[in-house]
Amino acid sequence: MAGPTLQPVGPDIWLAAGPEADVAGFRYPTRMAVIRLDGDGLLIWSPVALSESLREEVDGLGAVRSLVAPNSLHHLFLDDWRRAYPEAKLFAAPGLAARRTALVIDAELGDEPPPEWASSLDQVVMRGNRITTEVVFFHRRSGTVLFTDLIQQFPPGWFRGWRALIARLDLMTEPEPAVPRKFRAAFTDRRAARAALGRILAWPAGKVVMAHGAPVEQDGRAFIARAFRWLTG
């Protein structure tokens, strides 16, 4: 019998791995987070493909109130989640509305958390990147920071041939999760990026979760500082 899809990583926060997604010829693993908010309801961060077993587990935790697309690249499975949970509100990072004009977005994410999760999560927008604008979250109760694409790490052997070479040059297969070179070069407004990073480093982060890479289990704030040393040095 298969084990549970949702894996706890701290109080009131669970992770679930989804099927791989093909993006520009590269295979990407997918990961989402389920967060039980203070008071009532669940928040789904970066939803993966919605299987029957995953839906049963999510429903067992509570009612889905909020769906979150944390950047303009993570939108592949939003339609299925909207159909499954029509009462949930969809919150999206800046830029997704222009990319998915037919998608009904209830609210655009900003630098301040909306009332739905203000007591559970903090957030900041990493602006000034040509590839995507990413909203980084901090789950207070578990001390977990959630990055989407700005920090990545793929295990040895994940890519082969010319893809492995490109991944290595892009810092996607470093010994420690890192900001890929393409994202570093895409920051045209580094002043804005440093301001956002300053807020992130003020969070008392213990763990760091990313969509593409194994979670960092301890000393999260020190890890984030190392990952963005190229921006602050």
Score class of each variant (00 low, 15 high):
Ala2Trp: 12
Gly3Cys: 09
Gln7Phe: 01
Pro11Lys: 00
Pro11Phe: 00
Pro11Met: 00
Ile13Val: 04
Leu15Met: 03
Ala16Lys: 03
Ala17Gln: 09
Gly18Cys: 03
Gly18Ala: 05
Gly18Ser: 07
Pro19Ala: 14
Glu20Asp: 13
Glu20Cys: 13
Ala21Pro: 12
Asp22Ser: 15
Val23Tyr: 14
Gly25Arg: 12
Tyr28Glu: 07
Thr30Val: 02
Met32Val: 10
Val34Cys: 05
Arg36Asp: 01
Arg36Leu: 05
Arg36Ile: 02
Leu37Trp: 05
Gly39Tyr: 01
Gly41Asp: 00
Gly41Ile: 00
Pro47Cys: 04
Val48Glu: 04
Ala49His: 11
Leu54Phe: 07
Glu56Asp: 11
Glu57Ile: 05
Asp59Pro: 06
Leu61Ser: 01
Leu61Cys: 04
Ala63Phe: 08
Arg65Thr: 03
Arg65Lys: 05
Val68Cys: 05
Val68Pro: 02
Ala69Tyr: 08
Ser72Thr: 15
Leu73Lys: 15
Leu73Asp: 15
His75Phe: 14
Leu78Lys: 04
Leu78Glu: 02
Leu78Ile: 13
Asp79Phe: 04
Trp81Gly: 04
Arg83Leu: 12
Pro86Lys: 00
Pro86Cys: 03
Glu87Arg: 10
Ala88Ser: 08
Leu90Glu: 06
Phe91Met: 06
Ala92Met: 07
Leu96Asn: 04
Ala98Met: 06
Arg99Thr: 06
Thr101Gly: 10
Ala102Val: 11
Val104Leu: 14
Ala107Asp: 12
Ala107Val: 11
Gly110Pro: 10
Glu112Thr: 14
Trp117Ile: 09
Ser119Met: 08
Ser120Arg: 07
Asp122Arg: 08
Gln123Val: 08
Val124Lys: 10
Val124Cys: 10
Val125His: 07
Met126Asn: 11
Asn129Lys: 00
Ile131Thr: 14
Thr132Leu: 15
Val135Ala: 09
Arg140Leu: 01
Ser142Phe: 00
Val145Asn: 02
Leu146Trp: 06
Asp149His: 10
Leu150Tyr: 13
Ile151Met: 11
Gln153Val: 09
Phe154Trp: 08
Pro155Tyr: 13
Gly157Lys: 10
Gly157Ser: 07
Gly157Val: 08
Trp158Lys: 01
Phe159His: 08
Trp162His: 12
Arg163Leu: 03
Ala164His: 08
Ala164Cys: 02
Leu165Tyr: 10
Leu165His: 06
Ile166Gly: 14
Arg168Ile: 10
Arg168Trp: 15
Leu169Gly: 12
Leu171Pro: 00
Leu171Ala: 14
Met172Asn: 04
Met172Trp: 06
Pro175Thr: 12
Glu176Gln: 13
Ala178Ile: 00
Ala178Leu: 03
Arg181Cys: 10
Lys182Glu: 15
Phe183Ser: 13
Phe183Arg: 10
Arg184Cys: 13
Ala186Leu: 14
Phe187Ser: 15
Phe187Gly: 14
Thr188Arg: 15
Arg191Tyr: 09
Arg191Lys: 09
Ala193Tyr: 09
Arg194Gln: 11
Ala195Glu: 15
Ala196Ser: 13
Ala196Gly: 08
Ala196Met: 07
Arg199Leu: 05
Ile200Lys: 04
Ala205Gln: 02
Val209Phe: 09
Ala211Gln: 07
Ala211Pro: 00
Gly213Ile: 01
Pro215Val: 02
Val216Leu: 13
Asp219Trp: 01
Asp219Phe: 02
Arg221Thr: 13
Ala222Gln: 11
Phe223Gly: 03
Ile224Gln: 03
Ala227Glu: 01
Phe228Tyr: 11
Trp230Leu: 09
Thr232Ile: 11
